[in-house]
């Protein structure tokens, strides 16, 4: 009886592991950077999730969002850290048209400035748990982020949903304008899973061949 149970357990665990491996390989080979393969995206307006963050991230993200056609990208929801007190006012002052109702979703911060790496692991885990229901409920077609700490949990969860085939989100990462010579930590992590990865300086684009360089964007 016990042996039967153990066999069943080992069997199901390895099935899950192999399935996830298969889906992960599938993502890197067929999905990353290719939106049209599964015809997930019609010509309807795409739902966008923008991740905000103090220290210039919000201003940069809004600058990019303002140029995205409201007829093609709608609705827009915003994710920000619970302790972020400055981003909300900036969102409310944005020039983007057709942003009648502003939806702000708050999750715990995954890393404070100067926080130690060990405790960062714990707070990031905690933030990932909080990000699950947010991404699950919103199901964005595209996530726009430029490197605030909050983008890591959200993007990892969205990537997980893409890999298991539950919901495909296009991850768009725009490395912050302050990053002239090296990528941010968020950038280094998301470089592997982002569908589109922008850098704003030519030197960086040479170091990272997957990146897109169109000059300075903001």
């Amino acid at each position: 009886m016990l042996i039967m149970f153990l066999l069943l357990l080992v069997g199901s665990v390895s099935f899950v592991i192999f399935y996830l491996m298969h889906r992960t390989i599938h993502f890197f080979v067929f999905q990353r950077g290719h939106p049209a393969v599964h015809r997930d995206f019609g010509t309807r307006p795409q739902k966008v999730m923008v991740i905000l963050g103090s220290g210039g991230h919000t201003a940069e993200a809004l600058c990019l969002l303002e140029r995205m056609d409201p007829e093609k990208y709608d609705p827009v929801v915003f994710v920000l850290a619970e302790t972020d007190t400055t981003s909300e006012a900036k969102v409310r002052a944005t020039n983007r048209k057709s942003l009648t109702e502003i939806k702000l979703l708050k999750i715990p911060r995954s890393r404070e400035v100067r926080q130690s790496w060990l405790s960062t692991a714990w707070t990031t885990f905690y933030a990932i748990i909080y990000a699950f229901p947010v991404v699950y409920r919103e199901k964005p077609n595209m996530i726009l982020c430029n490197g605030p700490g909050t983008c890591i949990p959200v993007c990892l969860v969205a990537w997980f949903f893409t890999v298991i085939g539950y919901h495909r989100s296009i991850l768009t990462f725009v490395e912050s304008i302050c990053r002239v010579k090296s990528l941010s930590l968020s950038g280094k992590i998301l470089y592997f899973i982002a569908d589109i990865f922008f850098v704003q300086y030519e030197g960086l684009s040479k170091k990272y061949p997957r990146s897109v360089f169109l000059g300075r964007l903001v």
């Binding site: 995206f41 093609k72 296009i170 589109i196 169109l214 000059g215 300075r216 964007l217």
Partner: peptide, 16 residues
């Protein structure tokens, strides 16, 4: 900077 280039790239990517 030129955020319109970003928007154009995203439009092309989604094909909309």
């Amino acid at each position: 900077g030129k955020p319109e280039l970003f928007a154009q790239y995203i439009d092309d990517f989604f094909g909309i």
